[in-house]
Design a protein around this nucleic acid. Structure first.
Lengths: 404, 404
DNA sequence: CTTTCTTTGTTTAGTAACTGAAGAATCCTC
DNA sequence: GAGGATTCTTCAGTTACTAAACAAAGAAAG
């Protein structure tokens, strides 16, 4: 090796592209400093990206005494991605550009008890409609991200959708998608150790540590709903006691509100006796609206929930050493104004060493769908380093050992 | 590019060496399968490692119909590392070989109120004694790992020790070191998403996710001691209420025991009125011995603590999707028999999706010192991919933008 | 305007680390 | 001991980088 310690990146092209995305606007010299590569390498890599149409030169920086730097930016409309969020009763479709900005959006009532084949067909049709509505050429669409609360159930569904749409499909869970969406569209800056607290019908978290998404070996990382906040608390379906979800999840908030006759009437709750999932989200929104209108009992319910969520979030931030916490998802979209100050008070004071910055996502309502598209962008443009197979998987390959 | 998607690793040599270490024994063909590299590359890389003396051929596998595979193993005595653990009142020195096995061990009373220069001098002398006691050549020692509960305070101390011993020094906190030690010496297999729960005078956790140590941007990741388990619990010095540490940490256990006159006498507790750190560890050990002797009150105290720790550990396992939890550190070394079954009951039942395997470290008492040495082995032999500079740091470099 | 300096970006020759393919070595089976 | 299977090595070719020289663009000074 000739030069200093050579650091071979997963893919230089991908690393450079991701830096341009993260920086928003950067010069070649900036890339040289950021990557540690030489000017020559950056020059050829950037030329390749410009030739592909992914990157464009967008102006000059002021001179610092010599030639002005040519600024580079992602060509946001060079490629697109489709994101689909399967909620309990609603399917949200978005088409985003390279920057993660929404170009088109459709929302439809959920599948109901139809058979999967019909649902796939209808979804493919709606994806087509989404794409046609803005007239984007098909070959500029990188793929389709499909997210839901429980993605393993989507495996064969995703394969069918892949055949029906002709787009590569990637799957993930909604909270992780939301986190990646925030990361991609720059909502959390480049500060890359953060969590996206997702509240929809349930509570979850997407976790990004040092710029890398942590999904966990079984894909269940971020299960914050079963953080215990009271050893002698109410029984949770998971078997434990005092889980965050039963103490303060949207379901718990809605159940308490329904038990309050006056509040039920004032807020106009739908779900009288039914415990179905759909009304939970609707009723949570109704409670939030009531709180905003000044209903003290609705507000008290939400603030009680917020205190629990805040404490669980503090524990999470402590354990993971988070820099930023983003609140996102439909339920935070409607109730963020109540939760945000409570979480801020709990987390922005000195936690252990450094305070945690708490933010409300600007696109909380469709965060998962946007995140689903962002996952496509990330997987297509910034392919992660391929993991080495574990020696355990290998054991089967190795013949029995016969030493000497 | 000619072949399939080329995955350029941080360093092929390091990746191969780490695979050999992790597998314990593996053939060249096994390495080909594990890395995705071609036989030719593995051949030359392995030859290099053998020439350096780091790896040795140790026998043959049974044939699968053709030539038998030659098995490779780490040459455990090719290199060594020194690990030093600065506890509150005790300094533990270990010399380990490449496999993380302890070759020599010294433990001395702590520094007390001496001035740093004298302490560094004494430590350097004891490191020399450690090395001389087994007659290892100096140039076979890769470096010295120095760990403590609060490593930032060690920065200039480490530099002084580097000058005094002539060995490269790396710093880390004790819990993280313990986790790396477990990982390196194979205590957790290759299952690489786990936490090491460390209990000494306080409570902490070292976190390894997907084979990568997560320290957090400020190095405080794993702060499990301030996980909240009771919103209305006792006040903690950190400002919050109901933290695990005040409810169930070793300090809390010892404080309760001291308040119990009969137990104090029966266990022979040292710290009557003093609240110094040193007696906490000693008294915790005394309480554990009393429990083992059958003292019901001591046992009850520990079991109460264990229940809290178990619930916090479950929350942690849920959020991080852990596969394995290792109990380690001096306090678990003496009280592991009480804590282990309680934690097992809480974690090995279905938590969310998959159960978590809970183990007691076989070398819990000196886990941090061993881990300190393991950090040296890892940093010298498996250098991590250099992190890219964040675009934020870059902003200062970039001149103001003047578009078009 | 010309000269000189600074900074940015490109080109080019050279190199390390890989791949692919052919060949050598070793072991089993018949 | 011939033939096939498998493991390991050798070697020429390719890729992705570096270093260093060069070209281009602006600032500063006369």
């Amino acid at each position: 090796m000739s030069g200093p310690a050579r650091v071979t990146h997963a893919s230089t092209r991908a690393a450079v592209l991701d830096l341009i995305r993260a920086a928003g606007m950067i010069s070649r010299v900036g890339l040289v400093n950021a990557t540690g590569l030489t000017g020559g390498t950056i020059s050829t890599v950037v030329r390749g990206l410009i030739d592909e149409g992914l990157v464009a030169e967008t102006g000059h920086a002021e001179s610092t005494g010599g030639k002005r730097r040519v600024m580079l930016q992602l060509n946001h409309f060079a490629r697109y991605a489709v994101g689909v969020h399967l909620d309990d009763a609603r399917i949200t479709y978005v088409l985003t550009n390279l920057g993660g900005a929404v170009v088109a959006r459709i929302s439809r009532a959920g599948s109901g008890p139809d058979e999967p084949a019909a649902v796939v067909g209808r979804m493919a049709g709606e994806v087509d409609a989404l794409i046609d509505s803005v007239g984007v050429e098909r070959d500029r669409i990188l793929g389709l991200g499909l997210v839901a609360a429980r993605p393993p159930a989507l495996a064969e569904f995703g394969a069918a959708l892949e055949r029906a749409t002709g787009l590569p499909v990637v799957l993930d869970n909604d909270a992780t998608a939301a986190a990646i969406g925030e990361h991609w569209s720059g909502g959390v800056g480049a500060t890359s150790t953060f969590a996206a607290l997702y509240m929809g019908t349930g509570l979850g978290a997407g976790v990004v540590l040092g710029g890398t998404t942590h999904r966990g070996p079984s894909g269940h990382a971020g299960e914050i709903g079963h953080t215990c906040l009271d050893l002698d608390g109410p029984q949770c379906p998971c078997g434990a006691r005092g889980c965050l979800e039963v103490l303060a999840g949207p379901g718990a908030v809605v159940a308490r509100a329904r038990a309050d006759r006056a509040l039920s009437r004032a807020a106009g709750l739908v779900g009288g006796r039914t415990r179905a999932a759909a009304p939970v989200a609707a009723d949570f929104a109704a409670i939030s609206r009531a709180a905003r209108r000044g209903n003290a009992r609705a507000l008290a319910l939400l603030e009680r929930s917020a205190r629990y969520v805040a404490v669980a979030a503090r524990s999470l931030a402590n354990v993971l050493d988070l820099e930023v916490l983003v609140l996102t998802g439909p339920s935070f979209a409607v109730a963020g104004s109540v939760y945000l100050p409570v979480l801020r008070a709990e987390l922005e004071g000195a936690v252990i060493a450094h305070p945690v910055s708490v933010r409300l996502s600007p696109s909380a309502a469709s965060a998962s769908a946007i995140g689903a598209a962002a996952i496509v962008l990330q997987s297509e443009l910034v392919p992660r380093q391929q993991a080495l197979r574990l020696p355990e998987d290998l054991a089967a390959d190795e013949p029995p050992v016969f030493v000497r």
